[in-house]
Design a protein around this nucleic acid. Structure first.
Lengths: 243, 243
DNA sequence: TCGACTTTGTGCATTCGTTCACAAGTGCCT
DNA sequence: AGGCACTTGTGAACGAATGCACAAAGTCGA
């Protein structure tokens, strides 16, 4: 993250609600998904407890999170599903359609372009660019792959809001710079590298191998635990191996 | 996360080092990557300040993070790159090879199977399974796609440590259950749903659309800011649209 | 209308994570 | 040998996030 929402225009009027905490924002999409699923099942009301179970968190946290958006529940009853869906969507800005540009038409770019979860939440992939001239012209998910040379043009013409980098690490920074220069202020980076951007541009990183490494850390730690306190339970994999 | 490393076997001897904080663990892979890059450039020593820049964090945090692993730096000099790479790798458990099973051979499964960042960090994809019988037999990244029916068999024979779910949400829970029943205790979930697992099994979730939603939230917020305090600066996209 | 029951919203305590600031080491130059 | 410049490691202050517990506010049935 490179934007600090504090210290903005010294004399500026502070927003009335004291801003939604980052941790809460990260959970809102999870609630939203649970709510959508419930709505499809015909449920029209959920208690914080039920929502908490569906989202895999504690009920107190659900209530506190939702309280940051306003008082949208009814005591003794719970939250009306449709209404809450609307409120969360609005808070997240999903009521408008965001135009997304994916750079990199490799496997990951393909996967992203085909992912159905985007369109239903107001994200529209407007173009798919690739560095490899050989790949230009392919047809993926209703889009034809275009050359990365046309990046600036596409950003300007389509009014791209969010750029997604699904390309090798060595091309990521240069491409990111071009996106930023073209006016994109939100970037989702799948390349395994740290991007430098000017203040005011927001970058989020998704790193596949990082996730595996975190899992490995915990798994290793657990093996040590088991080793010191052997418990009845499967250990198909010889423990010696873990050293 | 569903494992609580506290409250484990009441009378058990506590580990000598008070455990590495979760937030630190999440950053270790980033440091590792920066260190590896430095090593390839022939750098043999890095200060916390240089490492911090490369990793995109503050230098105090680098020092505190690394201090949790031990005292591997030299005052007045910095950290020896090779040595630190080794120590972090060991801490993360990357010195052994982890056997990974990917379930779901769609675009995302393809992307994961082809991803080069795994092998170099001790992660070996031992199999790629799919629910779609039509896809069985395909050849991807040196693996042939097998049927998900053979899941239990593959887990047992290959000694799978980590399961990766790259399939639709409606098949995720059932497949996860099968993995867990077969003895897998670490799962990386790309399906957009919350998985329930018994205590002792660790799940990490990567959600593509969640990341976009978080970006959208901040972008929207920024547009409001600009609207209230118009600053010289591009706003290609009509502001009215953001309402 | 009243009382039993349910569930939200929130003040408070606690834990976790980050940043600051500096003493204590280390290498280098004279 | 001694002083200087540099960098680590860490106590302490701060801030963010989580969980607890309960008053306030609503529903429902009699």
């Amino acid at each position: 993250m490179s934007t600090d929402s504090s210290t903005r225009l010294p004399g500026a009027a502070r927003p009335l609600r004291p801003a939604v905490p980052e941790a809460t924002v990260a959970r809102l999409p999870v609630y939203l998904r649970a709510l959508t699923a419930a709505a499809e099942d015909g449920v029209d009301t959920l208690s914080s407890d039920e929502l908490a179970t569906a989202a895999g968190v504690g009920s107190a946290m659900v209530r506190k999170d939702l309280s940051h958006l306003g008082s949208y529940g009814t005591r003794g009853v719970g939250y009306e599903v449709d209404y809450l869906i609307y409120q969360i969507s609005r808070e997240l800005g999903l009521t408008q359609d965001w135009r997304v540009l994916i750079v990199g038409a490799g496997n990951l770019g393909h996967a992203l372009a085909n992912y159905g979860g985007f369109a239903s939440r107001g994200f529209r992939v407007v173009a798919l660019l690739d560095l490899d001239a050989a790949r230009v012209g392919e047809h993926i998910a209703g889009l034809h792959v275009d050359s990365v040379d046309r990046l600036e043009q596409v950003v300007a013409e389509a009014g791209v809001h969010i750029g997604v980098l699904a390309l090798p690490a060595d091309a990521a920074q240069a491409t990111c710079d071009r996106l930023v220069a073209a006016g994109v202020t939100s970037v989702l980076n799948f390349a395994p590298c740290v991007l430098e951007v000017p203040a005011g541009v927001m970058v989020r990183k998704v790193d596949l191998s990082t996730e595996l490494q975190i899992l490995a850390f915990h798994q290793q730690r657990r093996v040590f635990q088991v080793e010191r306190h052997p418990v009845a339970g499967r250990s198909r994999v010889p423990l010696a191996e873990a050293l």
